[in-house]
C-alpha cells in the first residue's frame, strides 16, 4: 500500500470509512453498510471530482482530529462546518502537519471527508464498510492511518482546493422536511387509528439510535402481537416491536426480522432522518401511493 495521507489522532465519537455499501450479500445475512447520509457523502466526492460512491470518511458528531501527512486536497460536507469554510460545504488545500479538528456541529450528526481518488482500504464482500462484530474488519481508532487510492490527473479547474457547493444543496439539518413514508408489508394489519396516529403525531429521535437503527420516541402505537414469519428488511423500514416504539432500520441493521413494518421511509428522505439528533422532532407524511393491488394468480 502507498504512503498514508492522514493520521487519525482521535476518532472522536466515531469514525469509519464508508462507500455505497455492498450488493448481493444480503441473502447471506450481510447488511449493505455504506454512508448513512448518501446525499452529503456524494457531495463530498463530487467536490474532489470522484465518482459518487467512492470511499469517504464518516465522522459521528464531534471530536475527531486528523493530522495531514502530506499536501492534500480534502472536501468536507454534512453536519460539521469547519471554521474557515465561510459556512459552505467545500474543499481545502492542506499542508503537511496541518490538523483538522471536527467541531461540534450546530445541527446534524454525520460529517463526511473525501480525498481525491478516495480512501484505499480492505473491502469486505465488496465494500470498505466494516462489520467488526463479525470479524469483518475493525473500527478506526486513534493512530489509524488512512491511505489514498491512486487517481488520474484532475480534469477539474486548477483551484480545486477552493471549490464549493451551491448553498441550496446544503442542508439545514435543524429543519428537516416532513419525511415521506410508503406503506410497508403489514400496513393493512395496523388499525386505522394507529396509522393515523403514526402520521399525525410528531416523533423524536431516541438516544438509542445508531448505524443499525434509529428508534423513535412518542406515543407508542398499538401492535398486533401475532409473531410474523421472518421477512426481509430494507433500510428505512419502520418496524414495530411489541412495545409499539418504532425502529427505522439503517444500513448496518439486521437483514430479516419478525416485527410488523408499518411503512418504509422514502430512500431520498432517509438521508434527512439520519442527520436528526436524539431529541429532535420529525414528522412523517404519506408518500404518493403506487398502484395497488398486485397480481393474484390462482
Amino acid at each position: 500500500m502507498n504512503d498514508p495521507v492522514l493520521e487519525l489522532i482521535s476518532p472522536g465519537l466515531g469514525a469509519s470509512l464508508q462507500d455505497h455499501g455492498r450488493r448481493g450479500w444480503k441473502r447471506f445475512g450481510v447488511p449493505p453498510g455504506g454512508a448513512l447520509d448518501d446525499h452529503a457523502a456524494c457531495w463530498a466526492n463530487l467536490l474532489v471530482g470522484n465518482p459518487l460512491h467512492t470511499p469517504v470518511l464518516e465522522l459521528l458528531l464531534h471530536g475527531a482530529v486528523l493530522r495531514v501527512l502530506r499536501p492534500l486536497t480534502v472536501s468536507i460536507t454534512g453536519a460539521a462546518l469547519i471554521p474557515d469554510a465561510e459556512g459552505l460545504w467545500r474543499t481545502f488545500d492542506l499542508e503537511e502537519d496541518d490538523e483538522v479538528a471536527v467541531p461540534p456541529p450546530e445541527s446534524g450528526v454525520w460529517t463526511y471527508l473525501a480525498v481525491r481518488g478516495g480512501f484505499l482500504a480492505s473491502r469486505w464482500f465488496g465494500s470498505v464498510s466494516v462489520f467488526p462484530r463479525g470479524g469483518l474488519g475493525s473500527a478506526l481508532t486513534a493512530r489509524s492511518l488512512l491511505h489514498q487510492a491512486p487517481h488520474a490527473p484532475p480534469h477539474s479547474p486548477p483551484h480545486i482546493g477552493r471549490r464549493w457547493v451551491d448553498p441550496t444543496e446544503q442542508r439545514n439539518y435543524a429543519h428537516p422536511p416532513a419525511l415521506r413514508v410508503w406503506p410497508g408489508p403489514q400496513w393493512d394489519l395496523f388499525p386505522e387509528a394507529a396509522r393515523d396516529r403514526f402520521f399525525s403525531q410528531p416523533w423524536r429521535i431516541s438516544s438509542r439510535s445508531d448505524r443499525t437503527g434509529y428508534r423513535l420516541d412518542g406515543n407508542p402505537l398499538s401492535v398486533s402481537s401475532v409473531p410474523l414469519p421472518s421477512e426481509p428488511v430494507l433500510p428505512g423500514s419502520i418496524q414495530l416491536p411489541p412495545d409499539g416504539v418504532p425502529i427505522v432500520t439503517q444500513r448496518d441493521g439486521p437483514t430479516v426480522g419478525g416485527y410488523p413494518k408499518i411503512g418504509v421511509v422514502d430512500p431520498a428522505d432517509l438521508s434527512w432522518l439520519v442527520q436528526c439528533r436524539p431529541g429532535q422532532e420529525i414528522r412523517f407524511i404519506p408518500a404518493t401511493c403506487p398502484p395497488l393491488p398486485a397480481t393474484r394468480p390462482s
Binding site: 450488493r23 448481493g24 444480503k26 441473502r27 449493505p32 408489508p185 414469519p229 421472518s230 421477512e231 426481509p232 428488511v233 430494507l234 437483514t255 430479516v256 430512500p267 403506487p290 398502484p291 398486485a294 397480481t295 393474484r296 394468480p297
Partner: peptide, 30 residues
C-alpha cells in the same frame, strides 16, 4: 441488485427507477 429470501417471502431491490410493475413481475414469477 438484491434478492433476499424470508420464510415465505422474497424481497427484490432495484436500482432507482428500475423497479418493474408489480403486476408484470407477479405474472412472471407465478
Amino acid at each position: 441488485i438484491e434478492s433476499t429470501p424470508g420464510m415465505t417471502t422474497l424481497l427484490l431491490e432495484f436500482e432507482p427507477g428500475h423497479c418493474p410493475q408489480p403486476e408484470f413481475l407477479g405474472a412472471i414469477l407465478a
